[in-house]
Simulated scan of single mutants.
Amino acid sequence: MGVGTAPRRGAALLASTLRIIGTAIALVLVLHVALTLLEANPANQLTIFVADLAVRFNLGLADLFLPADPKLAVALNYGLAALVWFAVTAVVVRIVRRFA
């Protein structure tokens, strides 16, 4: 093993882990938007679970836009939160890989 190989592997593992977590969070938000737009049964356990997770990860953006249509509100607010999660994840992963 060369000098610095272990820290590089550790940083690569950290970057991969962060990418998986950030992408999973963004996908939960996108799934919440999809379930809302497709009018999934709000009493269904999967729908409730996804909605609860989405509320936890919305970055305070759940009421940024307040259009009259509640579906549009979910699409705009949670869609924006998903985009922010994707962007922040990409930046953080790039930083971790650069300093590895």
Rank of each mutant, 00 (worst) to 15 (best):
L27I: 14
A15F: 08
R8W: 11
Q45M: 14
P67G: 00
A100L: 01
T23D: 14
V88M: 02
V93K: 08
P7E: 08
A100E: 01
V28A: 09
V88H: 00
I95A: 03
A82F: 10
V33Y: 15
V88W: 01
A62M: 03
L35G: 03
N77S: 00
L14M: 12
A82Q: 06
G10R: 08
R97Q: 06
H32D: 11
W85Q: 09
A51E: 07
A68S: 07
A75Q: 06
P7F: 13
L64K: 06
L13F: 15
A87L: 15
H32G: 05
N44K: 02
H32M: 07
F65Q: 01
S16Y: 04
F57M: 08
R94N: 04
L27W: 15
L66Q: 12
R56L: 14
H32V: 06
G2M: 03
A62S: 14
F57R: 10
A11E: 02
V88N: 00
L38S: 11
A87D: 12
V33K: 14
N41R: 12
A75S: 07
F65K: 02
V74M: 12
G10I: 05
R97P: 01
I48Y: 02
R98P: 00
L31A: 15
T17Q: 08
L27N: 09
N41V: 03
A62H: 10
V92S: 04
T17Y: 11
F86M: 14
S16T: 05
S16Q: 04
G10M: 09
F86Y: 15
N44W: 06
A68D: 07
V50D: 00
I20E: 10
A90Y: 13
D69G: 02
T5R: 12
A43E: 13
F65T: 02
G4Q: 03
A11V: 02
G10Y: 12
I48R: 10
R97A: 06
L53Q: 04
L27K: 06
L53T: 00
V55H: 14
V28R: 07
E39F: 12
G10E: 08
F86G: 06
V28Q: 05
F65P: 03
P70E: 05
T23H: 14
N58L: 07
A100Q: 02
V96K: 04
L72Y: 04
L83N: 11
P42N: 05
R9C: 12
Y78K: 10
R94D: 06
L64C: 02
V84H: 12
G2P: 01
L66I: 04
G4V: 03
A73E: 02
R94T: 07
I21D: 03
I25G: 08
Y78T: 13
Q45P: 05
